[in-house]
Amino acid sequence: MVQRLRVRYAKRGPLRFTSHRDFARAFERALRRAGVPMAYSAGFSPHPKISYAGAAPTGVASEAEYLEIGLAQVSDPEATRSALDCALPPGLDVVEVVEAEPPALADRLEASRWRIVLDGVEPAVAEAAVAAFLAADCVEVERKTKDGTRTVDARAVVVALRVAGPGATGVSAVDETAPTAFCAILDVVMRHITPAVRPDDVLTALRHVSSLSTPVTPLVTRLAQGRLDEASPADAGSHPRLIDPLNRDVATTTPPR
């Protein structure tokens, strides 16, 4: 391996239903069609060097998914981006490719910012739910996992949460002949932890602490990932900045441990 490239890609529209496994398979085929000179692992069944960073759940759209590939020949990042983007179906879009530099990609992805579109929810109802949630120290929710249910604290991971204001209805592709009357949009920044707490869990928590109900399946989009900018305001009502993980500036600062 002579070069590592970091890739930002988006999962848009109907293709947000692509699971991570599905994406991985499609991406490997796209690498082959695009003729990207991949480095392969040694051993009995060689596989291309790709490392994925925490993928968005199936059904959640994303503007900011990341992965890293290892190449056997030095390639131009922009040429690689455009070749890969052409080789992937519209809706799986390669947005940016840069050469990898320390620190490691995983260390640059500390938190995510999500947009949650709640069709059919009055903004005032959403406001009340958000206020109740933020006032709590801890909101435990049950989550179904492969091995049963697990209880997680949805409040602890939320760095910031606000109602971004009423949006245009029909954002979540509801039948336009029967428009829902209202639409509330949540803007939430959540820290990545293990085991994962997802936007879904925050929605469950909001329903727990208030009378919020969501008549239509909410449309969730990951807008950004990155490290939390320490310089930005820290109180939960405002908007902390996420530092672009592909930004070269980051390379000069050491992540806090």
Binding site: P14, G59, V174
Partner: peptide, 24 residues
């Protein structure tokens, strides 16, 4: 029919199979 189908897909198993958009 996709606009009517789409909001219902999160509730079914492997929704990607109903989405189309395959290469070619």
């Amino acid at each position: 029919l996709f606009a009517r189908l789409e909001p219902l897909l999160p509730g079914v198993s492997k929704p990607i199979q109903y989405v189309g958009g395959e290469l070619h």
